[in-house]
Design a protein around this nucleic acid. Sequence first.
DNA 1: GCGCACTACGTACGTTGTACGTAACTACGA
DNA 2: TCGTAGTTACGTACAACGTACGTAGTGCGC
Lengths: 238, 238
Amino acid sequence: MADRAAVPEVIWARPERTGRGPKPAFTRADIAAAAVRIADASGLDGVTMRQVAAELGCGTMSLYNYVPRKEDLYELMIDAIGAEHEMFEPSGDWRADMLRNAEETRAIMYRHTWVPRLMPGVFGFSPNTLRYLEHCLACLEPLDVPAGTKTELIALLNGVVTTYTGNEIATAERTRAMPWSAEEENAVRMAYLGSQIATGAYPRLTASFTEQSGPVDLEAVFRRALERILDAFDPDLR
Amino acid sequence: MADRAAVPEVIWARPERTGRGPKPAFTRADIAAAAVRIADASGLDGVTMRQVAAELGCGTMSLYNYVPRKEDLYELMIDAIGAEHEMFEPSGDWRADMLRNAEETRAIMYRHTWVPRLMPGVFGFSPNTLRYLEHCLACLEPLDVPAGTKTELIALLNGVVTTYTGNEIATAERTRAMPWSAEEENAVRMAYLGSQIATGAYPRLTASFTEQSGPVDLEAVFRRALERILDAFDPDLR
DNA sequence: GCGCACTACGTACGTTGTACGTAACTACGA
DNA sequence: TCGTAGTTACGTACAACGTACGTAGTGCGC
């Protein structure tokens, strides 16, 4: 029996096929694509080993020949959507390029709303992740700061993109999944917040709430956050 | 029978006790404390309805009298650790105060390593969350920007603290939970990264890796990220 | 003092990840 | 050329999870 048990292993380090025995029926890409298809259609919770196997048309346990743990399936999924990133030719304007990268990541997340929920748990540097990092570094070539600072900029931007977009998606999905209407939910929330505000314990918070009129433009907030971070790394603004 | 079914409800809007029938055996605080105790000791995955009930010394299903869904239990937990935040008197130096707030949040997360994993899923503005936001706004009183901008600063800071600290914790826990040693894991990872680098497909990434010598000072990276964000909101630096 | 709204909790169901055993298959060493 | 070792494939089975449901007991408001 194959030792599929505990072995210090990044799935990307394990060769895709081994040569001996029957030909594998699927590639990793097949499996990743099936999982992505399910996640897009039914959400991340729809991605079960049984469902993925059914989508592929094979027995549940056969999957474990390709993916030692479910966690590794997630890794495959993240790598798969990483291929959607357009690795454009750097323009020479590092700010514009990084904005474009961020905006594209955001778009990918809106296309695959399960990505933000998966990101924090993914650690193996998948091929497409490495390609993306390399691409970002290429975009940052004109920026005259140490390499370590560039890495920090990339990490900070990616983190903000994930956090902001993930929050928006989670809020949207929350209202969608509920058996009651969004208005109803909002009414209950507002009633609660109103009752809290009425206690007078949160004067500044109350002022902040009442001051702002109309709905928040999430995209604008997102853009401002990005710009601010770019400002903070821009030597020309110091 | 009580209708514990789908109702648009924030748990904080539901009154803690109703007056009729037998006195409840526990308060929400009891339950939250029990869940926090378990999470601290056995991780977030140890927090099951059965475990929490056992910790309280009651039947599993009795919990559902207090907490309609497990998700609401999480909400209770987040609120409970929110009480650990020290709401100090603002010093008048908003940068120093916000740094202190961030550093304290980070410390709380290191004390309760499950917090970052829970944060993205928590939406109900719990009492302690409101108190914390109010406190942040008090610290930002000397900052001369619109109220909306202050809110954005708070959100950005909190997001970065959660992301950075959460990543660190996840990495640490990952190596701890593994049946193999951290050195072994690291060796495998490095061997893999080395093999990728050897392909020559990632020249800039390779340079960045080899350029940096010695381990990364995570706390310093964290501090720099905070300072940069504060810079970006500081009118005196524009 | 009656009844209703609540608490308490055992049982049970559906679903999950995955350990394990078995059977079939093929590339390699002899 | 032929075993045989290392695979793939997959059915069965198990422990653990969230929680629906039913029943029994309790005490406040009318």
